[in-house]
Amino acid sequence: MVKFALPAGSNPVKGKLHKNETGATNIRNFHIYRYDPDTGGSPQIDTFEVDLDICGPMVLDALIMIKDKMDSTLTFRRSCREGVCGSCSFNVDGTNTLACTKPIAEIKGDVKIYPLPHLPVIKDLVCDLSHPYAQYSAIEPWLKADTPPPERERLQSEEDRAKLDGLWECILCFCCQTSCMSYWWSGDRFYGSAVLLQADRWVQDSRDEAKGERLTELNDSYKLFRCHTIMNCTASCPKGLNPAKAIGHLKNQVARRE
């Protein structure tokens, strides 16, 4: 049956307590998922006492301060620190989001930081995104046109360009993708919300000439129709996009061909 419980050895156990000995008064506990492939064993939840008086406002600021001042072995992805690159997506306080745009002040009580759900963990907060990236490749996210390119750019009306708003802004952080239960259970075949939003971005593009081919490829009980409109994707998107709407549009486009 469905694996509701984690496999043996995957259940996190209580880890180390990293005390703050500086006499700081504005302390917040950060509980962070740790897994080291070299030592193996069960993952641990380490607790870090972070001095908020010398820490920046965002969750990512705390992570960087922990790595700098408390435990340099803490491993996580980050780059732009302003919600553009999509690297620092974690499960923070029970919701998938970008650590760089999530203020610590929005979280009540202790801060819990886990890797994105239901992906293989490489180390600590770094998970293996090979499969979602490969699914993104599979939808062929580039302009396909048989009409030879004009001398200058392929033209698009302002109205047609406006159809891509709410789609092009996706930064592929996979917060939505990994918040979806359908993706947890059937992610091997279901494309997931981030990939389907990207598919819609090309289906909607007036310059693309491969719409039919794209819709044929998506018309499958698993690839597209495993979406049950749970809408966790829209609830979790840190960029405020609406992947559920894009998926609804794709289903509609496929249905209109019948």
Partner: peptide, 19 residues
């Protein structure tokens, strides 16, 4: 990973069940 993601391809009839 790309081979796994493409799998056996599309059946091109998922929409009928949905409708």
């Amino acid at each position: 990973p790309l081979g796994q993601a493409r799998g056996s391809g599309s059946t091109d009839h998922g929409v009928q069940h949905w409708l």
